[in-house]
Nucleic acid binder design. Structure first.
Lengths: 110, 110
DNA sequence: CCAACATATAACCTAAGGGTTATATAAAAT
DNA sequence: ATTTTATATAACCCTTAGGTTATATGTTGG
């Protein structure tokens, strides 16, 4: 089991479309398949990846599989990214300091 | 030339590590290479991709190439992703707004 | 000038990603 | 009980991504 990777999950345009679809509400696999031009197994693979990365969740209803957004994970992903940017900006101040201190004299390394 | 895709740039863990390194300050290619277990050409490829997506920039200093974060672009990149996720979450984002306004996160710069 | 160093580039390998078709399985409908 | 429907799975193809080694190019120090 690996750490959920939102970059992996959302890195593919088809998966982003699926996720966007699910924003409108839960959908069966069949409904999702019909919304795309690609085959059912291909869609299934995308769904599996989204499940693995916890972006969506799945429940059974008879012969149907119903997929919905996992808002919890998305929210966490969102916060992680915000945090990341925040840290970046903070460090940037340090970096500026670093630049001033070390200046252009960078060829005296070893 | 291919479609600029921030997920492409940040989708690879090695590239994210490089970005994290550069958060600490500018580095020569050599310094970056030495921080990883992979070969110089491999690192070079990652740097090229980050350059293409404008996440980093490069300047020459004699025989050295010095890489630094393009803070603005990185920020925009993350904001794009955040925007996407935010749209997915819509109403759920109230608590998040709260979180942001608490001042732990500064998502604007001067 | 020459040797050493930093980087660039070419050629190649392998694994993974995204797609396919064909077929198996499970639930529902007839 | 059979057929239809929804989903799962297997086997395969093609392209790309990420890595390698070997070598060329450019810059600097001795």
């Amino acid at each position: 089991m690996m750490m959920p990777d939102v970059y992996r999950a959302l890195g593919d345009p088809t998966r982003r479309r699926i996720v966007s679809m699910l924003k409108q509400g839960s959908k069966t696999q069949k409904e999702i398949v019909e919304a795309f031009d690609i085959s059912q197994p291909a869609i299934k693979k995308h769904l599996t990846i989204l499940l693995e990365e916890k972006i969506i969740s799945e429940r059974l209803k008879g012969k149907y599989r119903i997929y919905s957004l996992n808002t919890n994970s998305l929210q966490i992903a969102y916060q992680d990214m915000l945090q990341y940017i925040a840290e970046l900006l903070d460090d940037q101040l340090v970096s500026l300091k670093d630049y001033v201190e070390r200046g252009e004299i960078r060829d005296e390394q070893d």
